[in-house]
Structures are given as structure tokens and as C-alpha cells.
């Protein structure tokens, strides 16, 4: 199971409490994780990555194992600890404002 932490507003939109745990088929990458997430929570489509292009929205960031992986190619395998579920994948709204 891959564990995913969503930002507050997306948790409210998807009506979930805190962390999501999902089975992800095949190699665990950003693409496969987001595909699985959007299949289970279709209201999240368009909120993390754009419709059509599937590009990450500009003010969204991805963190894993204390690393910023926002700019890694989306088909790069995620760290083993994330794939194994011992570490969560963090989807974060960028700090913007003051």
C-alpha cells in the first residue's frame, strides 16, 4: 500500500480524514500513484495535475523521504520506502503568501 498525504483543502474536497492508502499496480511512480488516486477520488482530477496535459499544477509540490521530487520525471520509480508504505508521499500546496 502506498500512503499519500494530501493538503487540507484536497482532503476536505475528497472527504477523507488524513492519509490515503492505495494499492498501486506495477512500478510505483508519480504517474501510477496519481492515476490510482484519481481513480478512487475522481473529484481530485484537475486539482493536482492539469486535465489533458497531466502536468503538475504550478503551486503543487511532491515530497518523499525528505526530498523534493516535484521536478523529477513522472515515470521515475519512487523511493522504496514510499512504494513499501513505510514512508508517505506528501502532496503539498506550495508556500505562497505571507
Amino acid at each position: 500500500m502506498v500512503r499519500i498525504e494530501l493538503p487540507y483543502h484536497l482532503r476536505r474536497l475528497a472527504r477523507i480524514d488524513r492519509e490515503v492508502a492505495l494499492d498501486v499496480e506495477g512500478t510505483v511512480t508519480m504517474t501510477s500513484v496519481l492515476d490510482a488516486l484519481e481513480t478512487h477520488y475522481p473529484m481530485l482530477r484537475g486539482t493536482i495535475r492539469e486535465h489533458g496535459t497531466l502536468k503538475r499544477r504550478p503551486l503543487i509540490r511532491f515530497f518523499a523521504c525528505r526530498q523534493d521530487i516535484s521536478h523529477d520525471p513522472v515515470d521515475t520509480p519512487l523511493p522504496e520506502a514510499v512504494a513499501a508504505g513505510t514512508e508517505p508521499l506528501l502532496i503539498v500546496g506550495a508556500v505562497a503568501g505571507g
Binding site: L10, M43, G46, L59, A94
Partner: peptide, 8 residues
Amino acid sequence: TSSWFGQI
């Protein structure tokens, strides 16, 4: 709507 999460 949100600059972060787009349109709902």
C-alpha cells in the same frame, strides 16, 4: 476556485 488547486 484556488490558485493552488484550480477549479471546482
